[in-house]
């Protein structure tokens, strides 16, 4: 199998606090890796280091063998690292459709073009509409993103990532705070991407039943360190995970 994404000794510290501590890990094409660990373990920070929102103190990030460590977040996105955020991160007063259309525009789009009309690029519009149908938000297309209920905002967050169609999908607790009847829409979508087997998926997830259903592989972060790595059943059953989650209610 081919390695798509790799981190080597990736570390970052905030003052004296080491949030991610020498994490070396490789991710193969077509594999969904779940990243688990207690609150504050450094999962989101690890994502930020990979997708470039945060600069590493030490270590390297490689995408298809290319060293990305010195590159900016936009450049990394252009090269194929796609990110959905744990805390919903949208363009609040723009419409739902425009949020997704902008993602298509960023990927396929006319760039710094300032002489044509945005509405005349109908292929971007049509793709955005189709994308909203996949997350079942088509009826909300004309609402401002800020007016959506929380669950729908999470769906929009996922729709934006789908629009970017990256090599590496990074989902950070995509279903957190969603009502039970909304969760399957998102999980089915992630499963659909996984079944294509040509994308690399990283999924931060606390719910163990979701991990068991979707993951091909599980890694465990604990106090910034990678402490376990392996097949889901084995890792979830391991003492280290049991210890890490001891007392955490949602296991």
């Amino acid at each position: 199998m081919s390695i798509v994404l790799e981190t080597r000794d990736l570390s970052v510290h905030f003052g004296g606090h080491v949030a991610v501590d020498g994490v070396s890990c490789a991710f193969d094409r077509g594999i969904l890796t779940a990243i688990v660990g207690p609150n504050g373990a450094g999962k989101s920070t690890y994502f930020n280091l990979i997708s470039g929102q945060l600069r590493a103190t030490a270590g390297a990030v490689l995408l298809e063998g290319r060293d990305l460590t010195a590159l900016s977040a936009p450049k990394r996105t252009q090269l194929g690292l796609g990110r959905a955020f744990q805390l919903t991160n949208l363009f609040p007063s723009l419409t739902v459709l425009e949020n997704v259309r902008l993602a298509f525009q960023a990927r396929l789009g006319p760039g710094l073009d300032f002489l044509t009309m945005a509405i005349s690029h109908s292929e971007l519009h049509d793709r955005a509409v189709a994308c909203l149908e996949r997350v079942k938000l088509q009826t909300r297309a004309t609402f401002p993103a800020a007016a959506l209920p929380h669950g729908d905002q999470r769906k929009l967050e996922v729709a934006i990532l789908l629009a970017l169609d990256p090599l590496v999908f990074m989902f950070d607790e995509p279903t957190a705070g969603m009502s039970v009847d909304e969760v399957p829409t998102i999980l089915d979508l992630i499963e659909e991407i996984r079944e294509q087997r040509d994308k690399t998926i990283l999924l931060v997830e606390h719910k163990m039943e979701v991990v068991r259903r979707l993951a091909d592989r599980v890694i465990v972060l604990h106090q910034g360190k990678l402490v376990a790595d392996g097949a889901p059943a084995a890792v979830v059953a391991s003492t280290i995970v049991q210890e890490a989650y001891l007392g955490v209610a949602h296991v």
């Binding site: 936009p74 363009f91 945005a118």
Partner: peptide, 28 residues
Amino acid sequence: RVVNSPMGRVLQAIRENEFRAEALGLRT
């Protein structure tokens, strides 16, 4: 015309959430 162009839409995205615009791959 400029504010209604594809570039104009990016300007609004920057106003709304520059961090997110960068995460879309837009070099703001």
